[in-house]
């Protein structure tokens, strides 16, 4: 075996021929699937067992939620572009796209806050029965995930301005952040369908 190949195989970042950071993030996302899966199933089960407990169609605004979904999808698109820009060592494009992701993420969080506030005014809170508790636990947990993602990207954006961010070294880090953000998006895709749209059928 050549010295280069030996050095590659002995690289502490690639024990299993993939970057350890990427592998760990994918494993974490797999576990997060189980986390959200249980919460989604809890909500659906209680809706199934107690369908007469609450009628959310009078409260849900499908237009607002669809707009939120669209915003999150577009943020996912910009995140993919940011990762691609980092792979091409284009820092300007990377910063531009990351700002877009942060902006869209904040819009999504703003829509969630507005929606929760409206629900609270109408009497639907975390303590108002099974629907309220399961709904707010699920969407609130997702919102916290989005907030963590926004904070992560804000830190990454400011770090890119310090001059210490080497595109060659940081491409995987950006990719890992992108994986987290895309996961948050796909969870919302499921929540939008299973929690919101299904109620209107």
């Amino acid at each position: 075996m050549s010295d280069a190949a030996t050095a590659h195989n002995n690289d502490s970042h690639h024990n299993l021929m993939v970057d350890n950071k990427k592998l760990l993030m994918w494993l974490f996302l797999g576990s997060d699937c189980m986390f959200f899966g249980t919460m989604i199933s809890t909500h659906l089960i209680y809706r199934k067992l107690y369908p007469e407990s609450f009628d959310p169609t009078s409260l849900f605004s499908l237009e607002l939620t669809s707009f939120s979904t669209f915003i999150l999808l577009m943020s996912s698109f910009l995140m993919a572009l940011a990762v691609s820009a980092m792979h091409k060592c284009d820092m300007k494009s990377f910063r531009r796209n990351i700002i877009g992701v942060i902006f869209f993420g904040l819009i999504f969080l703003g829509c969630q806050v507005y929606e929760f506030t409206e629900f609270a005014h109408e009497g639907l809170t975390l303590k108002s029965g099974t629907f309220g508790s399961t709904f707010f636990m699920l969407t609130g947990t997702h919102g916290v995930h989005v907030a963590i993602g926004v904070f992560w990207l804000i830190c990454m954006y400011f770090y890119s301005h310090t001059g210490k961010m080497d595109p060659h070294e940081s491409a995987v880090d950006v990719e890992v952040a992108g994986l987290y953000w895309h996961f948050v998006d796909i969870v919302w895709i499921i929540i939008f369908t299973a929690i919101y749209l299904i109620e209107f059928i």
């Binding site: 993939v18 989604i40 199933s41 995140m79």
Partner: peptide, 27 residues
């Protein structure tokens, strides 16, 4: 496509797919 799984190694698909399969089965 956005998460690049089709461009990456099968190991990553297995890593995520295992959790996803367990979650789906549980639901």
């Amino acid at each position: 496509w956005f998460m690049h799984l089709i461009y990456d190694r099968l190991l990553l698909t297995l890593a995520f797919g295992t959790g996803l399969a367990i979650a789906t089965g549980t639901v």
